[in-house]
Amino acid sequence: QDFIKSYKKANKNADPNTFTALGYDSVYMMKQAIEKAGKNATRESVRNAISGMSFEGVTGNFTLDKKGSPKKSVIVLELKDGKPEYKTTIQPSK
Rank of each mutant, 00 (worst) to 15 (best):
S6D: 14
T63M: 05
V58I: 04
A49M: 02
N11Q: 06
G60W: 11
E78M: 06
T88W: 00
F19L: 13
D25V: 02
I4T: 13
T63V: 15
L22I: 13
K67N: 14
G38E: 04
K67E: 07
K9T: 12
I75L: 07
F62I: 08
K36A: 14
A41C: 10
K72P: 00
Y28C: 07
T88F: 02
S69G: 01
I34E: 09
M29S: 03
N40D: 15
Q1V: 13
E85H: 15
N11H: 15
T89A: 09
T88I: 07
D25L: 01
V46F: 06
G82T: 06
G38T: 12
P16D: 01
I75K: 14
G82E: 06
D81G: 04
P70I: 05
M29P: 01
E78H: 05
K87N: 12
K67C: 00
F19T: 06
T63E: 08
A37I: 02
A33S: 11
K5G: 05
N17H: 13
V74A: 08
S51L: 02
P70D: 04
V46K: 08
K39G: 10
L79R: 11
T18V: 09
K72T: 01
M30N: 02
K66M: 03
K9V: 06
Y86V: 01
M30V: 12
K8G: 01
Y28I: 09
E78Q: 13
I90Y: 06
K72S: 10
S54G: 10
G38V: 11
K80S: 04
A33F: 05
M53V: 08
K66W: 01
Q32F: 01
S93F: 09
D65Y: 00
I4E: 05
N48W: 03
T18I: 11
N61Q: 10
T59K: 05
R43C: 00
L22R: 14
Y28E: 05
Q32T: 09
A37Y: 08
I34T: 14
F3C: 08
G57I: 06
S73G: 13
V58H: 00
M53Y: 07
A33T: 08
Q91K: 15
M53A: 12
G68H: 09
N61W: 01
F55R: 04
E78G: 04
F55D: 01
D15T: 02
I90C: 00
P92W: 07
P16R: 02
M53S: 10
R47Y: 07
D2H: 11
L79T: 13
I50E: 10
S73N: 06
R47K: 15
L64E: 02
L22Q: 15
Q1W: 09
T42E: 07
E85I: 10
V76W: 02
A41E: 09
